[in-house]
């Protein structure tokens, strides 16, 4: 026997003895007979439930914090008050921020869906593998390169001495100051969210039977009519899910308003961050956090009511 064979032999023996030991241990454990097998299911989901309990406990904690008194030295004292909530209700600056966050996120959601549907359609229906590959590549490069990197890319593109202004000047136009405007925030957010939207709409379009499109064509519909009356209604669950995901993620975004908005286009997330690290006002940051979660949930539930849960409903299970 060569040395490699000896090594393999020892390794196999080792694996077998490990497996035997595990089985021996398992047989010592009293439960997991057939009658108990459902109980084993609860054991299996425990780690997942525990990991997420950090967030559940945290939300409860924030609710409690939101009624505590802010103190500049100790951060907060354990005296209950409604001052933090009153501050939110009475300060119009915060209303403006919430309104801006919702407005921009809605705009971004609409743009993303409008852009994502044709893209997803082409990914599914194109007959050319190369085109599909290129489209998928273009989807995953931004998806995998993170929000900071992309915001930085936009800074280079749209900045005062950026590529876009160089292009404008070279064709004899005045350079533009895009960074620091709402346009920059919208562009950044749409580019950030578009891959998510396409990824969620693609499966919905893939599940549409091709014959339905052919039937529509035979019945005399042109491409736009087919799109309007066949594709869109059938892809609606995917579109609903995409809209929800785009809206909630945009609403919670911090880095794009921060880097591209130039301080005048802040979202609620920026306010929360400043409240936590600027003034260390944990109670008020808790109020802002709870309201942000609540607003997002209300919008999502509203969409669920009106359009159904889309493909987000029962993702796991049969």
């Amino acid at each position: 026997m060569s040395r490699i064979d000896t090594y393999r032999h020892t390794w196999t023996q080792f694996k077998w003895s490990v497996m035997d030991a595990i089985i021996a241990i398992k047989e010592r454990i009293p439960f997991e007979k057939k009658a108990d097998s459902n109980r084993f299911g609860y054991v299996l989901i425990t780690p997942g439930v525990l990991v997420i309990s950090f967030l559940a406990v945290g939300m409860a904690l924030l609710t409690w914090y939101s009624f505590l008194t802010y103190d500049t030295i100790q951060i907060f004292t354990y005296e209950y008050t409604l001052a933090n909530w009153n501050r939110l209700i009475q300060t119009s600056a915060f209303h403006t921020v919430f309104f801006r966050t919702i407005l921009y996120s809605t705009l971004v959601t609409v743009l993303c869906v409008v852009f994502a549907v044709p893209y997803a359609y082409l990914v599914v229906r194109t007959k050319q593998p190369i085109l599909r590959y290129v489209l998928l590549f273009g989807l995953f490069v931004p998806f995998f390169s993170g929000v900071i990197i992309r915001a930085y890319g936009w800074l280079i593109l749209l900045g005062r001495n950026g590529a876009f202004n160089w292009l404008l000047e070279s064709i004899g136009l005045e350079p533009l100051n895009i960074i620091g405007t709402s346009t920059a925030v919208i562009i950044g957010l749409v580019q950030y969210m578009l891959p998510f939207a396409v990824l969620m709409i693609t499966p919905a379009i893939a599940s549409i039977d091709r014959d339905l499109e052919r039937a529509a064509k035979n019945a005399g519909a042109n491409q736009i009519q087919t799109f309007r009356h066949v594709i869109l209604p059938l892809a609606r669950p995917g579109i609903t899910a995409a809209a929800i995901v785009v809206f909630t993620i945009s609403m919670a975004n911090y880095s794009i308003p921060d880097l591209l908005g130039g301080g005048t286009n802040d979202f609620v997330a920026n306010f929360i961050y400043q409240t936590v690290f600027g003034t260390l006002n944990y109670p008020f940051a808790s109020v802002l956090s709870i309201v942000l979660v609540a607003v997002a949930s209300i919008v999502v539930l509203g969409v669920f009511r009106r359009y159904g849960t889309g493909t987000l409903g029962v993702e796991v299970g049969e």
Binding site: I45, G48, V49, I52, F54, L55, A56, V57, G58, M59, L61, L62, Y65, V245, T248, M251, A252, Y254, A269, I272, Y273, V276, Y282, A285, S286, S289, L292, V293, A296, S297, V300, V314, E315, V316, G317
Partner: peptide, 25 residues
């Protein structure tokens, strides 16, 4: 069904809020 909704909590809680929660905990 309830457990599935619970497992979606990381998506429903905005990241900045999750960060704040984890900072405290």
């Amino acid at each position: 069904h309830g457990i599935q909704l619970y497992l979606l909590l990381p998506f429903t809680v905005p990241l900045v809020v999750s960060g704040f929660i984890l900072l405290i905990l």
